[in-house]
Amino acid sequence: MPLRLPQPVTLDALQEMMKDPRYWNVNHPERSSWSSMVSEGFQTLFPNPIQRDETGRQTDGADGEGVVHVRAYIRTVSRQPVDVSEYDRSAPTDNEHSAQSTATTLSEENKVPAAPPGVDIDTNINEALRHTAISP
Rank of each mutant, 00 (worst) to 15 (best):
D83F: 12
I74P: 00
Q100G: 04
Q7M: 13
N110F: 08
R4G: 08
E16C: 06
G66N: 03
G64R: 02
T76Y: 01
S98I: 14
P49D: 03
P116D: 07
I121N: 02
I50E: 05
R79I: 00
D94L: 14
S101D: 06
S32F: 15
Y73M: 15
E65T: 14
V67G: 01
E40A: 11
D63A: 04
N48W: 04
I134G: 03
S98F: 15
N95I: 14
D83M: 12
H69P: 00
N124C: 14
T55E: 13
S39Q: 15
T76G: 00
T123S: 08
M18C: 10
F42H: 03
Q58I: 07
P92F: 00
A62Y: 04
D53F: 07
I74S: 07
E30T: 09
S78L: 11
Y87M: 09
P49L: 04
S90D: 09
V26F: 10
S39W: 12
H131R: 15
E54D: 13
D122W: 05
D20M: 06
G118Q: 04
M17P: 01
E16N: 11
D53V: 07
S85G: 06
L129N: 05
T104V: 15
K111I: 01
D20E: 13
H97Q: 06
Y73L: 15
A99G: 10
R89Q: 10
L129G: 00
S90W: 05
S78G: 06
T104A: 06
L14Y: 05
V77L: 03
T44K: 12
P49N: 02
A133D: 12
P136E: 11
K19M: 13
A72T: 01
S36I: 08
